[in-house]
Structure formats: C-alpha cells, structure tokens
Design a protein around this nucleic acid. Sequence first.
DNA 1: CATAATTGATAGTAATACTATTATATTTGC
DNA 2: GCAAATATAATAGTATTACTATCAATTATG
Lengths: 223, 223
Amino acid sequence: MEIILSNLKIQVNEKIYVKDPETSALGKKIIEQSILLIDAIGFDNFTFKKLGEKIGSNESSIYRYFENKHKLLVYLSSWYWSWMEYKLVFATTNITDKKEKLNKAITIVTEKITDDTATEHINEAILNKILIAEFTKTLHTKEVDQENKEGFFLIYKRVINRIVTIVKEVNPEYAFAKSLVSTIVEGSLHQHFLTDHLKTITDCNDTVTTTQFYLNLTENVLR
Amino acid sequence: MEIILSNLKIQVNEKIYVKDPETSALGKKIIEQSILLIDAIGFDNFTFKKLGEKIGSNESSIYRYFENKHKLLVYLSSWYWSWMEYKLVFATTNITDKKEKLNKAITIVTEKITDDTATEHINEAILNKILIAEFTKTLHTKEVDQENKEGFFLIYKRVINRIVTIVKEVNPEYAFAKSLVSTIVEGSLHQHFLTDHLKTITDCNDTVTTTQFYLNLTENVLR
DNA sequence: CATAATTGATAGTAATACTATTATATTTGC
DNA sequence: GCAAATATAATAGTATTACTATCAATTATG
C-alpha cells in the first residue's frame, strides 16, 4: 500500500482552492504546516498570518492558494475523504464474502489513524485528529447548500454511498442504509472525540475501540 | 405539560454567564432575540453588536450578561438540554414497561421540535433548529476540557446517562450503552441536519423520520 | 536570456471582539 | 418620597482578524 499511495495524486474539487497547492513547493508547505498548526492551536485560533509566520511566508501568498481558512479546512477534509476512499476501495476489492467486505469497510472508516502513512507532506494521523476535532465545521455554515451545490462535499458523500452499497448487499431489506452509514461515519469521529474529551458518555477507549462498537452495532442491525 | 413548563425555572450552570439573564427584562430579551438572530444569520455571523442593534440595546450591556458569544451558545444549549431532560423525565416516569419507556425516551430526544411550547421568551422550535445547526460548536473548541471541568456540559451528559440507565434496564448485557446513546443523541441532530442539507446521505425525511430510524436501530441492537 | 509567473513586503480598510469610563436611567430599601 | 444602589446606555479606544491592493524582488520556463 505504501508504494501505491506515495504515487497517488489525491483529487480535490478545483473550486475549493484558488491555486492548486499540489503544484508548488509553497503550496505543499501550506498544506503540511497548516495541518500541524491547526492541530496545535485549533481551527478557531488558526489564522493565515500565524501560518505565514510559521512557514516564513507572507500572509498574502497564502491567500493566493486559498480564499480563506474555511476553504483550507474544506480542502484538508476533502483530501482526507479522498484518501479514505482510496483505502476503502483498495481494502474491499476482491473480497467476495459480503459480510467480511462490510466489516472491512467499517473498520477502515471508524478506526483511529495512529501512524503517518505514505504521502510526502501530509501526516494522516494528525489530519485524522483534525477531522475528529474540526470536520463538522466544514458543514455547519450558512453557505452549506451553496457549497454542496458546488461539489465541496462530493467525496465525503461518495465514501458514504460506497459503504451504503455494501450494506445493501448484506441486507437488501434494510430500510435505513444511508442513515446507518452516515451515522457510523460521522458518529465514529464523534466517539473518538468523546474518548478524548467526554469519557463519561462513551464506552470507547484504548481497549474497547470505536470500531468494535460499530462492528457490533452493524452486525445487530443488519442480521 | 404546558402549565407545568411555564412555571418551570430551567437551571443553567452559573459559570456560563456573568449575570443570570433570567433576572431581568433585558436578559430575557437577549435570550429571546439571540435565538432568532442566530437562526437567521448563523452563529458564525452573529455578533453582540448586531444583537444590540436588534434589541435596541448597547453592545456593552450584553457583555454584562455573557463574556462572549460562545458562552451565550453554551447557555442556550444548556437551557435546551435542561428542557429536554424535563420532558424526558416527565414522559418516562411511571412507565413500567421497560421497552416502552426506552422508546418514549428515544422519541423525545430524536424528534424534531416543530411547535413553540410553553415558555415565555424562548421559542423551542427555533432553539431546536439552532441546536441542529450549531450544537457541535459548543464542544469543538480548544477549551473543551477546561469547560467540561467547570461543568458546562453537565446537563447534556446527564440527559445521555439517564437514557443509558433505561437502555441497561432493557438489556443489561449490552456492552455499549453509553456509546449507543451518545450516538443517538448526537446522531439525531446530525440526521436532521442531513435532511435539511445533504439529502443524498440520509433516509430520513418528512415521512420516514429520524425517530423511526433510531427506534428501529435500538430495537435491533438490544434484542 | 527575456518574459512570465510567483512570491514577498508594505500598506491600508472594515469588521470583530472586546475593555474602560462616564453619564443617565431605573429600582429598591428605608 | 427620596437617597443610594444598581443597571443600562453612550462613547471611545485597542488589538486582532480577515481580508485587498500595489509594487518590488525572485524564480521558473520557453
């Protein structure tokens, strides 16, 4: 997987950026360091000025890549879900047993990423932390309908619908496949958040994982 | 229920506000109108200056009630969950059948509030809309651990743990009661959000409700 | 090597998120 | 009914944010 991933160009909707950050050294530095800075100080405290200082570049240069920090977060999220989709497709192709395929898929989207994988300038483990802490903010804006129309959330929705297809293979009778999967994908980020911050309302921790919870849940719901 | 609710003083943690808004006409106006304004323009675009203009009061007067807009949102959320807890307790007390009790509880926390209920200056239907759109923002900050320590999320956690108790009465063997309930409570807000904005990844709509999805899910998981 | 494209530096604006001070109402306690 | 206390309003001011515009300096490319 390592080799393949390192050659992989993750596709992100062009409308999200002003200039594709993958096309220059500065662009890659913006992505790499924004992930570290958002993780360190949180998205709310993150500014392009601070990022500029961190990478030794001018604020105005960053604006040539992204209109604002919201779009940058949408970009990072899109990249993440694109990477997730790749992992998902890679891990489930050629599995003939439907239940096994579904379990694999659920494992992929619910497990916490703990190690930096193949890509050059992107630390997926930290990006996963950012998604856990900040992903909902990409959706919860007044512009969500407009941005949805422009395709900002296409990859996210595609990841969910890929798993929906697998769910329907396991149980074609089940009436809530979409809601189940969207609950799992969003909910697993939430359970990771609770594990980190509000331990009294989750059972998930280092030994009992979020993945186990959702595997068990899905098994029970679809049987 | 109407009469009782109108006499009810909803309790909110004192640390959330500078001055209790329930103790003055201006305070109540701040709560009433902030709900309408946040609903209208979204929390991100909401400022104390705009609220001041809307209620014909000075910005600085609002700061005497709330340190900042984040605390105001935490207050509104707290109030909502306190109201929800009241409804929950009221609706489930004296129900002896455990499954019926759980179904009632799940219905209470997952259904969309569509009508303004008893309280004077608070429109619960609109407040519910705000929770659907903005609640995650109360938790997803760098200060979450500190604020959790100070008890900002106590009522929210108590609502969840009340339902956890009911789940355990129905099935004491089930190992993920907390995660199940926190998934339901948070997830139902999310499903309502998807129904409003990302319809392609949910099955919930006007005829098939979020409540039905979660009743079915819980039934299957605990049987 | 000339030209184009990119980046950096500087400056500037409007809005945000407050704090401080003082004046003016309004409430309450005697 | 009035003085004292309290609440509110008005004004001003600061630091930061979230940009935009301009122009100079650097780097890439044909």
